[in-house]
Amino acid sequence: MTTKTDVTNNELPPYRKREALNRWIISLPALSIIMLAAIGPILIMLLYSFMVKGDYGGVKLWEFSFDGWINVFFQRDIFDETLGLADAHLTIFWRSLKLSILTTLAALAFGLPTAYFIATRPKHTREIWVFLITIPFWANLLIRTFAIQEVIRNEGIINNTLLAIGIIDSPIQMLYTDGAILFGMVYVYLPLMVLPLYASIEKLDFRLVEAGYDLYATRLKVLRRIILPMIKPGMIAGCILVFIPSLGAYVTPRLLGGGKNMMLGNLIESQFGAGRNWPLGSAISITLMLLVMFALIFYVRNATRSGANHG
């Protein structure tokens, strides 16, 4: 559509040109906010990632270097200055990716039955259930995460209870593990999966489900051949909403993963803080953004393909 107007723009009568100009003027405030708040900072970060790091943080302005980007994946040996793979960084990338994918899958596995349950309640009770799903958002994320810490730490409720009953002799290490991060992230992001899924299941025409049963499809086949393809847009939206914040999660891995089990968000924070390596921090930030972008492109492509089928 846009290309069509572009092509014919030259032949537009004057009043149409004025209209086009007016449209630009009207959208100016919005455009300037996007420039100042989104594109500007990203450009600054891109610029910083190509500069030499300052001795006490910051950068040496207009002194350019590729060190920031090289350090994302490689590290210079302290003695002979040869480049080797930055194992620590790669581990963190891998852990972030793995935990985000696992979080997304777990949220989908728990979110789908939950959303289905809510969408199949009588109309007036559905709103109550949706309301209940949003209640966790009322408490601050930090407080909720501390509460999880309190439950799973070595002297926490679970371990103390199990010890008291006599099922275990010594506390199980749950806090500061990848499992703890996964648990925390699924807990935090589950509502983001349930809500779009609920929206698409609620729109589902259950007469199609009846038609499936009528045509000899068992319950499992109705789920696989009719329900899942129909609610695919909701599933994709939910996965995007869970995956993206998971990949950049900061609070949850910090409090539940401890210092050892860092994720990308924590790595970036440490480069701008204790590491005093702003170019590296900027480069990792942009890498994270690229990761998210690729994931989004992958998702959107899938979504439009299934969308095209819907006509």
Partner: peptide, 20 residues
């Protein structure tokens, strides 16, 4: 018997064709 075990088929009022 559930619907999928009956040799009976239905033409639905709104057709209920599978849109996908």
């Amino acid at each position: 018997l559930p619907p999928f075990q009956r040799p009976i088929n239905t033409v639905f009022q709104n057709y209920a064709l599978f849109p996908h």
